[in-house]
């Protein structure tokens, strides 16, 4: 049985799991995130696209509680992300960097994460997460001896080991081969279908739209487009995205 983090979650499927309201973050004079608002409910996936420097990673770091917002607020599973550690228990984070320890094995890395999240059976949870990312056969290998793609799979296993209600993914497909990409898409779809809310930052429109229930384009810190996936035609969306992005070039 999947073990879920303790604390409030959405009481009904209509309650937001992630709620950002006028979220903003300023670095000096530059507003990296500028008044972003959105709501994600259980089982929803927001695919977020945008050119480099649009503020996507900063937004994810705000949602993960790694950055304090300059204004606005964000709630995860009904808890303010900056109000305490309990809200962070509901979040899984995948980033460009592997966030792993090279000297430890894949299993030790994932098991360490499982212990930090208070999983009752860390060894079992680590094994399940590694299996779901099809990297269980390399569980005892030191992470530094794994290829970039395998490291990324272990990193994703680390992020999903506690079955988070919210999964924040920043370019998770970076460095993955076909098998790894398929395993990731499957794992993300499984998380989404089991009621987790996903925020997927990617440059790859195809991969993003395949999983998305909402799609947004971010530019200069703000959402310039945000709509339900059902109303989006992938071909037209790609063309319009390119036009929007070239405005910055």
């Amino acid at each position: 049985m999947p073990q879920q983090p303790a604390g409030p979650v959405a009481a009904s499927p209509d309650d937001p799991v992630v709620e950002a309201e006028a979220l903003a973050r300023q670095f000096g004079a530059r507003r990296a995130v500028d008044g972003v608002s959105f709501v994600l409910r259980a089982g929803e996936c927001l695919a977020l696209f945008g050119p480099n420097g649009a503020g996507k990673t900063t937004l994810l770091r705000l949602l993960a509680g790694l950055l304090a917002p300059s204004s606005g607020h964000c709630r995860v599973a009904g808890l303010g992300i900056r109000d305490g550690k309990l809200a962070r228990a509901h979040v899984g984070l995948v980033s460009h960097a592997s966030m792993l320890y090279g000297a430890l094995s894949a299993r030790e890395n994932v098991e360490f994460a499982a212990k930090l999240y208070g999983m009752p059976d860390p060894a079992g949870a680590a094994r399940d997460a590694l299996r779901s990312m099809r990297v269980l056969d390399r569980a005892e290998a030191p992470v530094r001896s794994l290829s970039r793609g395998l490291q990324q799979r272990v990193s994703i296993a680390r992020a999903i080991v506690h079955s988070p209600h919210v999964l924040l993914c920043d370019e998770p497909y970076t460095g993955l081969d076909e098998l790894g990409s398929a395993a990731l898409t499957e794992a993300l779809a499984e998380r989404r279908d089991s009621g987790a809310a996903l925020l997927l930052v990617t440059h790859n429109l195809g991969e993003g739209l395949a999983l998305a229930t909402q799609a947004a384009i971010m530019r200069r810190g703000s959402f310039v487009r945000h709509e339900n996936r059902s109303g989006v035609d992938a071909g037209t969306y790609a063309m319009e995205y390119r036009e929007l992005v070239t405005l910055d070039a």
């Binding site: 983090p5 993960a64 509680g65 790694l66 550690k85 309990l86 962070r88 228990a89 979040v91 984070l93 980033s95 960097a97 592997s98 966030m99 792993l100 320890y101 090279g102 994460a113 930090l116 999240y117 208070g118 680390r158």
Partner: peptide, 11 residues
């Protein structure tokens, strides 16, 4: 590998 982010994002 920015493992600190994972520590700080943990509860």
């Amino acid at each position: 590998d920015r493992a600190m982010d994972a520590l700080l994002a943990a509860p």
